[in-house]
């Protein structure tokens, strides 16, 4: 990694941090748990790093570490997206008085 690349990366990091602060501040408290689940799934993008380590298969040692890392990240991606979706499906508004609650009327 050259000095130039490092500087560029620092720019990217700083700007992404500010972007994150601005967006996350606008997320309502209602959605904080789904938000945690979603950001968790997104940060499992470290999968791209572990896929390369595993795929290049350079030493037994690195392959084993890569394998465990790919499994762990995949659990987070699959589980994270599914659970966020499951939570968000539960959030519903009160049925409007005009429209009778037809969707899931409980006995």
């Amino acid at each position: 990694m050259t000095a130039n690349e490092i500087i560029t990366s620092l720019f990217v990091f700083a700007l992404a941090g500010f972007l994150g602060l601005e967006i996350i501040r606008k997320v309502p408290k209602l959605l904080h748990t789904p938000l945690m689940a979603l950001t968790n799934a997104l940060s499992a993008i470290s999968l791209v790093g572990s896929l390369v380590i595993l795929g290049e298969n350079q030493t037994t040692y690195s392959t084993i570490l890569g394998f465990v890392a790919v499994v762990a990240s995949t659990i987070n991606v699959v589980g994270g997206f599914l659970i966020t979706d499951k939570m968000l499906r539960m959030f519903r508004r009160a049925p409007r008085p005009a429209a009778p609650a037809g969707e899931e009327a409980k006995p």
Partner: peptide, 28 residues
């Protein structure tokens, strides 16, 4: 830690995703 890995692997996608996750946790 995901972001730091992005620096090591010179992978901007990891840097951004990690930074977003990091700031999200910090704000919460």
């Amino acid at each position: 830690s995901a972001s730091a890995l992005g620096f090591v692997l010179d992978n901007k996608l990891l840097i951004v995703a990690g930074a977003l996750d990091g700031t999200s946790g910090l704000v919460l």
